[in-house]
Amino acid sequence: MSGAGEAARPLPQGPVGWIFRIAVAAGTCALLAAMSVEVLAVIGRHTGRPLVGSIEIVRACVVLATSSAIVAATALKAHASVHLLTERLSETSRARLARLGALVSAVIFAVFAAGSIWIAAEIWPGDERTQLLGLPIAPLRAYWCAAAALTAALFLAWALGRRR
């Protein structure tokens, strides 16, 4: 886990680069929208014009932002891991382990995607809507399902990709 001010690393290129850029663009819009709505809600509350249902809008933005963030972090290969033992291995064994790790990662995100898709499909006819504004939740579920599936696909591509 690291944060602000780390040396700039190269951004992903090619198809992964496109996925990354779209995820960042979507995440940026969603996060800035969440920020603006909450600022307006606070101003509204303190000036006697409360913004009804602002939490529901922010929640929708949060789904879009965090789903995009998982895709973006994956495209950057930024998922935190422990390198205590692997650092001492040879180049080839390390590469093999990395492939294995990517495969396991693909499996777990495929499980998250499959579970989420199953649920979304089952809830679909139930017309899931937020309480105050009646915003439909199905599109948000679909977005998260797509993000989880895309994350699994990115890992799978690395696991099966050609050797450098």
């Binding site: 017309d127 899931e128 809507r129 937020t130 309480q131």
Partner: peptide, 9 residues
């Protein structure tokens, strides 16, 4: 069912 947002309207 009162907190579920879909399927138990």
């Amino acid at each position: 069912p009162i907190y579920v947002l879909g399927g138990a309207h």
